[in-house]
Nucleic acid binder design. Structure first.
Lengths: 389, 389
DNA sequence: AACGTCTTCGCAAACGTTCCCGATAGTTTT
DNA sequence: AAAACTATCGGGAACGTTTGCGAAGACGTT
């Protein structure tokens, strides 16, 4: 009773094993393998019935028009009769049509999404940058997906890969302190995906960058300390492979040299300033035989840690110890006599990078790589004001 | 010389206008319209040559196998010869293949992305929640896209629409203070997209919620004030359409009543506490003829504003005025005598919501809606410590 | 020889859009 | 009346995957 599906023969059929639960046959005459399901498959086909979302095709069918017409109507394109358009729009509303962005993305090969990779979240700096960028991107109709490299080069690489796979339209990135190789970034250039670096930038790659005037800011901060009569100023700096750390160190040195202060190498400490590290370094500096009379720290949390330790040790601020931080965290305005610090325009950084990426995404024309330097502001508070000025 | 493309006739051809730059003809015999481009189209086809990214098809072609084989090899599926797989992997590396997540998303109808909508960014509360959720989601291999409703119901609706269009796998949302209608949320239920509410929740919709023990926290905070000898305690509350505001007000009232304190209605102010509003309300309260001897504010920024104003007016804290805030912002530890406040487990809130949405995304089985209540902690500082306890 | 098992791979249909072309018909100009 | 123009609409390829199902052998077992 089994007929070959090709030659319609019945005699020369022989069994040839099972495949996925179905009997398999071989026709000896035409030498053709074929299978025949024993059970009806209706049950399984019912099983995998998925939740259906109304598509353009549904609208087209129910209106008796073509997909293209519906698509045109939905997008207010030309070549469409106003009545037809209205009918489509009504039907879309009635069927609760929600466009499938995924299909759109695939065909257009763009996602209306900008990616952002930041090294960490724990200082308020990056969250604020995100807020600024988010505002600009949202207003321009773009989404923002954020990833966190956690200061790890390997994670940064996997982040960029994920960004590539997700076909973001542009990338905003602030580098890891471990990042010394930039191949994972040049991939974006090759792919024609715009890229903007901010804060943690590098010189080795030729893309737009947004930074602040770290050198100048440090210079002014240290000069401010000197003007207030501090002589032996220590520097608590960040890891030296970061450009920002180098620049801030340069500013410190320049100010010291300009005013003829001797720079004592053991008073310069560079490294990743976790809270624990800040305490250790602070301990070291404050217990020094010939202890510094001021400390310029590269972030506010370290500066505050120093202030707390000084308070514990009975060292008065600003009389016996001047302290200056960097970034103007919210708590810096309220602690002790107030922490003098360098305010970074965080929102502005976010807005600027976002503005820039939007330009690059929209314009196909290559815009020359440029470094945009935003201005910081020295906020003078009690922790460094010793001369009444 | 023009032949009809159907009947091959030459004589009965006549011109019939232009369409998009091409001459159009009509064959009179077979009554058939057709066009014939005058210029060669090679130029234009070269023009629109797009940047090509290597696809699975490229690998398949260069290896002489089929797409399916490549796909299976790339995903470590079964039914694949180890040698073939290795060849595919090598070729993929060689051609710098990056999978196209968009195509994957389309065919799988999922995006590996969780959406999050928050009303605002300016308090550190939501950024911290984001950090917690981000951590969990990243570890689980999910992306996070964040949108901001800006406390506007309309924006919230458009946000949810965008989330739907982008086919997120799950949504975390904290509602706007304007949100009284929840149709835009029930859409997610209908679509089978899991939803978790946090912080700004509502009772009208039956989904998992993550909140803190607002009532209890308020109760304890006010009781703490009473224990410290404060009698006439004012309450600076949030907008009353928010459940959190209602709960905190309830806690305030309960504590006052339990200890037999009279609740004076003009000492309860509810509203959106911007910095400006906080100043206005604070002014009002502190200038009252029979001024309160303590203020329980519903967030720290308002409490701090009160403290600053008290300082300006020469009202001593905590002797003449006790102040308690809510949320434990970073600056609260450092201001004046220290601000007593209710610490919210922000990271934990983020982690919990994220954990939950991941469960819902993975399990098709419906988990019963449940409200998870996280514990707050009363952080006692100088602004309310009057009895040495 | 007849039948069963196992491994490996290809075909082709989705997934839901967008958009290039051309088709059709009515109207206007030459 | 021929030619041109205008306004609408449909067909169908493309976007790059995944995956169900079957094909083609090789080999083992009665």
């Amino acid at each position: 009773m089994i007929k070959c599906v090709k030659c319609e023969q019945v005699d020369s059929i022989m069994k040839a094993g099972y495949v996925r639960g179905k009997q398999r046959y071989l026709c000896k005459t035409c030498n053709y393998y074929f299978t025949q399901s024993e059970k009806d498959v209706s049950a399984s086909s019912v099983m995998k019935r998925r939740r259906h979302q109304t598509t353009i095709i549904d609208i087209a069918k129910s209106l008796g028009v073509s997909n293209s017409t519906v698509s045109r109507a939905l997008h207010g394109h030309a070549d469409i009769n106003p009545e037809t358009r209205q009918a489509v729009l009504d039907k879309a509303l009635q069927l609760d049509y929600q466009p499938n962005q995924l299909a759109y993305n695939l065909v257009k090969s763009k996602t209306n999404t900008i990616g952002m990779i930041v090294p960490e979240f724990h200082n308020p700096f990056f969250p604020n940058v995100i807020i600024g960028a988010h505002e600009v991107l949202t207003n321009a109709g773009y989404n923002l997906t954020i990833m966190q490299s956690n200061e790890s080069y390997q994670v940064e690489i996997s982040n960029t890969k994920a960004m590539l796979a997700n076909r973001i339209d542009g990338l905003l990135i602030s580098l890891t302190q471990e990042t010394n190789n930039f191949d994972h970034l040049s991939v974006f250039e090759k792919r024609g995906i715009p890229l903007v670096l901010f804060n943690r930038v590098c010189e080795q790659i030729n893309v737009p960058k947004v930074v602040v005037n770290d050198f100048e800011a440090s210079f002014l901060a240290v000069e401010h300390l000197i003007m207030n009569g501090y002589e032996r100023i220590a520097h608590l700096g960040g890891p030296l492979n970061l450009l920002v750390s180098q620049e801030r160190l340069r500013g410190y040195r320049a100010a010291m040299e300009k005013h003829g202060k001797t720079i004592e190498d053991h008073m310069i400490i560079q490294g990743m300033l976790t809270q624990q590290k800040a305490r250790i370094y602070g301990q070291y500096l404050l217990d020094l035989a010939n202890r510094p009379d001021a400390i310029f720290a590269v972030n506010d949390s370290s500066a505050i840690e120093i202030m707390l330790m000084a308070k514990e040790k009975g060292i008065s601020i600003p009389d016996e110890l001047g302290v200056v931080g960097f970034s103007d965290n919210p708590e810096s305005a309220y602690i002790g006599p107030g922490l003098t610090t360098v305010r970074q325009p965080t929102y502005e950084i976010g807005r600027t990078t976002a503005d820039w990426i939007l330009q690059l995404v929209d314009d196909e024309d290559v815009i020359l790589p440029e470094k945009r330097v935003l201005k910081t502001e020295l906020i003078v508070r009690g922790s460094s004001r010793r001369c009444g000025n």
